[in-house]
Design a protein around this nucleic acid. Structure first.
Lengths: 248, 248
DNA sequence: ACCTCGACTTCTGCATACAGAATACTGTAT
DNA sequence: ATACAGTATTCTGTATGCAGAAGTCGAGGT
């Protein structure tokens, strides 16, 4: 059975307030879902998750609420929690929503960004290109995510950032393999996007971002038809191991 | 102290499954927040809410999680739950996000809608115009909400519908008074929008919707500067009344 | 062999209990 | 009168217990 330790600390808090268990459980479960150790459609039994993570059912329940509200698990009242199994149609729809939100981000970024912000974008873009040149896929993916996030931050719209982040996490769940698929063209588009933002050309920025995201969606659809499902061995949740000690 | 009964039943369920307390608590609290009986910034003490609604703290906590994830309350770990107090900037940002999402809805609706759907739109539009003519503000507001929802439904994108609904509830919290402000022009815009959808003119539909939502935002800003805060007497949550019986 | 009915098991939903942290209060000293 | 320290109280976070509903399995009948 894989050891499923909860993360010790996530990010620096204002005060040395101990991070609530529910949040660590949330983080841990989200990662288990992303990594497919908790498989789509799998029934999540509270007592077994509690045992697995070494906590009581209460924080598990609260984490499940959160995961449910963000679309990671489905909660059927009186029946239980299940890892959400996205259909192809749903992923596609999610990508459409992301396209709309990111296009708006780009539009606002073009109106808002200062030279400082453009400099950050250029830097990230350079990092990404370097990663592509070095064939370092992981760095490329990371730079890509950061670049997109940076554009949304430069929009100056915090609410928009929240929504995009939420969509992004869900999309990335299915999306990660795509990145390996299309690297170089993507970064050319990024450069054009930054040019538009620098020139304050809101409409062009929005259009480029939309096309960019649309390309990503096309890649998803192609890649999807090629290899249907990754298939990772899921965690055996139904283990009857005695509760040892809080894995915290 | 106002009686704060939880709703007996919300909507028809598939099976005769009893609606979980947490959901009824969620509904009840959302309404209390919308009606300003729970005032922005107010500290929500779990035990007092539990007492008030006649349930234990557990369903309260779960409802608070949900309300938090949708932006109704802020949860400060180790400190408590507070009714979210939106700043003007945040409401404005929310309206921007809604504009983007609704414009996308209109675009997709133009591509997707069948004659059946257009018929529904025309009907709702007629209802709204009738309400305007009859000076029936409440019906007008209702028809407006339904019309917008219908457009999003016709987009055929369920994920989009979920997001728009979520944004919409939050916006409406602040937005309701606006409707009284601008009625007639709004409905002329609706008619033009439906025309564009009927003709399958996606770009026009998106543009009209964007302008439409932008007008609403302008109205909000104006109306906001006129009367800053409605001010409703908040529920006295700190009452020490003995717990009577489950208000269910 | 298949369907049906019924007891058993499992799991969720809710309530209660307890410990530690945070806040408010009170009394004292300056 | 004000600042400070120490105590008391309140509230959150977590654990545990219990009842009822849902699901499962097996025996008996067709």
């Amino acid at each position: 059975m894989p050891s499923t330790e909860l993360p010790q600390q996530m990010s620096a808090r204002r005060i040395d307030r101990p991070v609530p268990l529910r949040e660590r459980v949330y983080q841990a479960m989200q990662e288990l879902i992303i990594s497919r150790q908790l498989a789509p459609g799998q029934h999540l039994v509270e007592s077994e998750l509690a045992e697995m993570l070494g906590v009581s059912r209460q924080p598990i329940r609260e984490a499940l609420q959160l995961l449910n509200s963000e679309g990671w698990v489905d909660l059927r009242p009186g029946y239980g929690a299940f890892v959400h199994a996205p259909t192809d149609a749903e992923v596609d729809q999610l990508l459409v929503v992301r396209a709309a939100l990111e296009a708006e981000s780009a539009r606002l970024a073009a109106l808002n960004a200062d030279t400082e912000g453009v400099k950050r974008l250029r830097k990230l873009c350079a990092e990404g290109e370097a990663a592509v040149a070095a064939d370092d896929i992981d760095s490329m993916v990371a730079a890509n995510a950061e670049l997109h996030r940076c554009v949304t931050e430069l929009s100056g719209n915090q609410v928009l950032l929240d929504f995009v982040s939420q969509v992004d996490r869900r999309v990335r769940w299915y999306y990660t393999p795509i990145a390996r698929h299309r690297g170089i063209t993507s970064w050319q588009e990024h450069a054009r996007l930054i040019d538009a933002i620098e020139q304050g050309d809101a409409e062009s920025a929005a259009r480029i971002m939309r096309e960019h995201t649309e390309h990503t969606r096309q890649s998803y659809l192609e890649q999807r038809s090629e290899n249907p499902e990754p298939d990772v061995a899921p965690v055996q949740v139904r283990s009857r191991r005695r509760r040892t000690a809080p894995n915290l």
